[in-house]
Amino acid sequence: MDWLEITVDSLRGSVSLVAAAYALSSIGLNLQFGSAGLLNFGHVASMLVGAYGMAIVVDLGGPLLLGVLVGVAAAALLGWLWGITTLRLRADYLTVVTLSFGEILRFLIRSNWANPFTKSVYGIQRFADEFYDWNPIPDGDYGFEIASNPIRFSERQLWVMSVCWGLAILATLLFRSLMRSPWGRTVKAVREDEDAARSLGKNVYLYKQQALIIGSVIGALGGILLGIETQNVYPDFYIPLVTINAFAIVILGGAGSVWGPMAASIIYWFLFEWLDGVINSAMTEGYFGLLFEPADSGRIRTVLLGIGLVCLMVFRPQGLFGRRREVILGGT
């Protein structure tokens, strides 16, 4: 097993577009969950409507920018819909409704009925050429080597990565200013105790609704960039597992922390790629004997993700960077 190669590959993965897109998307979830305490189990739906909104518009002949706007507007609408269906009810309804919304949307775009727009299970491809036409980076191969193991990106990859990491930084700065403002203070108060916030004249419903919408829009941007990178959207990418990845990142970085999602996304995707590399090479070298087949490597990784999430919640609910007494998830 070539540990160095696996590690260098994982380093490459940790700054890749996937990590950037998840960082961006998780900032949205962090606003909803970390700051406002809203347990949104359908965050993937924000990414879905963002990516599909864009892809459908381009596929119908519209310009890419219009597509992005439509995707973002659809995500805002989704956040609003979540709000009106659940926010006046008990908080735990939100988990069930958001999870269901995500699955309903996935079923819908998958169905034959939506085929004229979504191309059902086949998905939509090649809708982001325009984005790459804007690429100011000259053709070439950029990067360096660590002990003859390359970390390299093409000009296309570098372009979409830069945009996405840039957006993630902007979103983080926005998040920071929002949370330092009186608006953020009120959102935190709503998270801590709704009744206390109400008794001080705060319209709890409005704040939650705003957090849901902003979070959904930021989440959609992550989905949009993920779509742009692969030039491919298809329904079965948007399964609840994507939401769980985002949750793992938010909790790993410390729910409610400002730079947490970005840092945690880098760490998370490093671990992800690293596990992948180790499991795969263990498999090709036959360490598992007959126990597993090649298709199992992703499954083993998901099992480990599940265990990891449980352990994180049990042993370090404040995440890597949080302080124990500030943990949002603990206590009653």
Binding site: D195, A197, S199, G201
Partner: peptide
């Protein structure tokens, strides 16, 4: 919240301090 804004503010029997503020 409207009632609170109209000038009638209450406290609670079980104190509701906002612990993480």
């Amino acid at each position: 919240y409207e009632i609170a804004r109209l000038g009638m503010v209450r406290t609670f029997q079980l104190t509701k301090s906002l612990s993480l503020l």
